[in-house]
Design a binder for these strands. Sequence first.
DNA 1: CCATATATGTCAACAATCCTGACGTATTCA
DNA 2: TGAATACGTCAGGATTGTTGACATATATGG
Lengths: 176, 176
Amino acid sequence: MPELRPGMQHLFLRDEDLRLGIELLFYAYRDFTAEPDRMLAEIGLGRAHHRVVYFVGRYPGIVVGDLLGILRITKQSLSRVLGELIRKGYIVQKRGAVDRRQRRLELTETGAALERTLTENQRKRIAAAYRIAGAGAVDGFRRVMTQLIDERDRPKVAESPASAPPPRASTGARRA
Amino acid sequence: MPELRPGMQHLFLRDEDLRLGIELLFYAYRDFTAEPDRMLAEIGLGRAHHRVVYFVGRYPGIVVGDLLGILRITKQSLSRVLGELIRKGYIVQKRGAVDRRQRRLELTETGAALERTLTENQRKRIAAAYRIAGAGAVDGFRRVMTQLIDERDRPKVAESPASAPPPRASTGARRA
DNA sequence: CCATATATGTCAACAATCCTGACGTATTCA
DNA sequence: TGAATACGTCAGGATTGTTGACATATATGG
């Protein structure tokens, strides 16, 4: 359990405060995804493709099972999206060297370019928000957002270094 | 333009900082919606129904056009979801008193109960995150999240009072 | 070495959510 | 009275997700 921070004991939460939190999540996510969605639509892809390209770029060499654990979808769902990305030349699979059952996923040059283009707007949006809100607010934002994530996944997300190993599937019950 | 906050000039944003922001949004939203989604699935409804029930509860008497402006979907999409909610007795329509073309939406008793049940988990999650993160962090969270929202919608979201008038459709270009 | 578990892929059918385009009706307003 | 507005509806299609069943290759423990 994280220790309670100063101010916690005075934190009286009105219904209205909680509603605002819910709505901030809704509106922020809505606007955060709108731009990439528009760009994806132009090349015949969808949001699901963005997520896959993003996380493969984030964890080069990630194996299929771990990607499933992050996305929380079934392998059949991932299969369609991943297959399209491979056929269109955005992602390549390489057999695992130590465990040859694994298919390690990597972005191609084209895939990396696509990822950068898609995420560009999101980076800008975050950067602008951080700059306007200030460093202190950024810290608070991170603290609250982290607590909103399921406890068992918080450590994975905190591991910021890009060179960090892909988050292992941990104990999460795998889907059908 | 909001004035720059102290600390802003020292805010050096590494690529990693931005990526963490992106991922926090993804994971938090994923986990924030998972529970209500499971409950909805049991009664044969989906996330779209939750959104409608939520905002009708939030702005009793909201008209269809304003709801479309919040959800940013087409009227054809809303029509199906809203129709189901009406048929199943969660929402009622009332003709506008001043403008009789309008259909003002309200939750029934059952609808209000459904909304409470669905949102219960989200409220708890937010409350827990706020308490652990502390009052200062909550303020930072709100500042950053607000900046992530499209500029023209920020005022609507800030109007916290439940008794506030439903946000007018403003200038937002209406969809097809 | 063999039985079992794991990692991945695939076929099939289906459901939810969203989209575009085209009309239709009632009501308001200049 | 004619145009604009608020809302609804029919039709067809795309994306993303689901369940269930089955197949292959590889790893692993006894």
